[in-house]
């Protein structure tokens, strides 16, 4: 499978550029909009790799659903620029984070250069997936047969999170009721 280098560099470049904007923008809403474009660039790369389902899910779940919630919360709290402006941090902290960041980057480079596992191909080559009926079919079959337990456990985890959120919201409401 050949990936067009032009499109790869286009999406990779825009991902890096918008990731930087996400961090550097002072305005929280502008940061969030940049993050959406980062997710988009990722989706483009997934689509180039032939993983159309992952690309669609990336846009649907991250760019579509989660980021709407993010922006909704930011706008609801009306977080304006000053509350996010924490001033200049301590000099030691700044230098420390720069060194740690560079160390992380170096580790990534080293791993990608030296790891043997990256070069090996699994059973799911593009040809095999196409023969089995495409991305969506193959992934759904695996998810609902071999990996049913992790799948169900994840949904239980999400359910627990929802119940927790509702419980916290209800508790706050009762207190307000008593006061009023």
């Amino acid at each position: 499978m050949n990936i067009s280098p032009f499109f790869f560099y286009l999406f990779a470049g825009s991902a890096i550029a918008f990731a930087l904007l996400t961090v550097l923008k002072k305005n929280p809403v502008a940061s969030a909009f940049s993050l959406i474009l980062v997710f988009f660039s990722f989706a483009g790369i997934y689509a180039l790799l032939g993983a159309h389902l992952v690309a669609a899910m990336q846009v649907l779940v991250y760019a579509g659903a989660i980021m709407v919630l993010f922006i909704f919360v930011i706008m609801l709290l009306n977080a304006d620029t000053p509350s996010f402006d924490m001033g200049r941090s301590h000099r030691l902290l700044r230098w420390g984070s720069a060194v740690l960041g560079l160390a992380l980057f170096a580790t990534f480079v080293w791993v990608f250069k030296n790891s043997a596992a990256l070069g090996t191909k699994g059973a799911f080559t593009p040809v095999a997936i196409e023969a089995a009926g495409g991305n969506t079919q193959v992934l759904s079959e695996l998810m609902f047969s071999e990996y049913i337990l992790p799948f169900e456990l994840t949904s239980v985890l999400l359910l627990a999170a929802i119940v927790g959120a509702v419980a916290i919201a209800k508790r706050g409401k009762k207190r307000v009721g008593h006061a009023g």
Partner: peptide, 25 residues
């Protein structure tokens, strides 16, 4: 005729709201 068909429709349709959010904000 994309393999992900309907999911594509939903993922693109979910982006329309950003225009409205952006306009309002």
């Amino acid at each position: 005729d994309l393999n992900v068909g309907l999911l594509y429709v939903f993922s693109i349709a979910s982006l329309g709201v950003y225009g409205i959010i952006m306009a309002g904000w």
